[in-house]
Amino acid sequence: MDFTSLTFTDVSKNFQRRRALNKVSLRCEAGEIVALLGPNGAGKSTLLSITATLLEPSSGEVRYGDRLARSSGPELRGRIGLLGHDLYLYPELTAEENLQFFGRVYRLPDLSNRIEAALARAQLTDRRGDLVSGFSRGMRQRLALERALLHQPRLALLDEPFTGLDDAATAALRRRLATLRETGTIVLLTTHDLETIDGLIDRAVLLHNGRLVAIESGEGSLRDRYRRLTAVGT
């Protein structure tokens, strides 16, 4: 299955008595990079988990094109790439073995060439046979990003993708995100590095106390506009 839009309609999520998301509505189109901003605990990771089909919303719905997650199953999951804060890598496996395992799980054709390209992008070609447990945070982050994008997903969900990256790797990730936009990927990312994504993203939305507010493009930097909104929100 394929889809060219992602639509949230009145999505709410409660954890017992705490409301993590409150009637969130948002639409993202193919080739769009949308930043999901907000303070810690605002519900960003919860929204990503719901989008990744790992969590069910308490109410409301998420549509991938015109289909719901429940009716799409594994086919839909195969079109989603998720980079989580915990990186989702096996530390006891080498960089290459991690990519091989997930490549086989996704049944990717031409896997060895994909792995070669992924290792080159992650600048880990010469460390391919090293255990991930011996990697620095930045190296793990680069490898995890390639793992998440190995199957060329339609929807890339990136939770704090810039964490631990040095300047060169940050610039490479910005280029990678721009490429994803050109190839029609829907990118939904969360970050606190507002300066890094300023000028790269198409849109930013603010999650605050479970509610979603659009950050309008306008005067000032993204950081300034974000501060103004969060000051109003509090």
Binding site: L54, G78, L82, G84, E92, R107
Partner: peptide, 18 residues
């Protein structure tokens, strides 16, 4: 516990496998 440490279980749960 191994699948929890790096949350690899989540990666497996969103993979297109049964």
């Amino acid at each position: 516990e191994r699948e929890r440490q790096s949350e690899t279980l989540r990666a497996l749960l969103i993979a297109p496998i049964s």
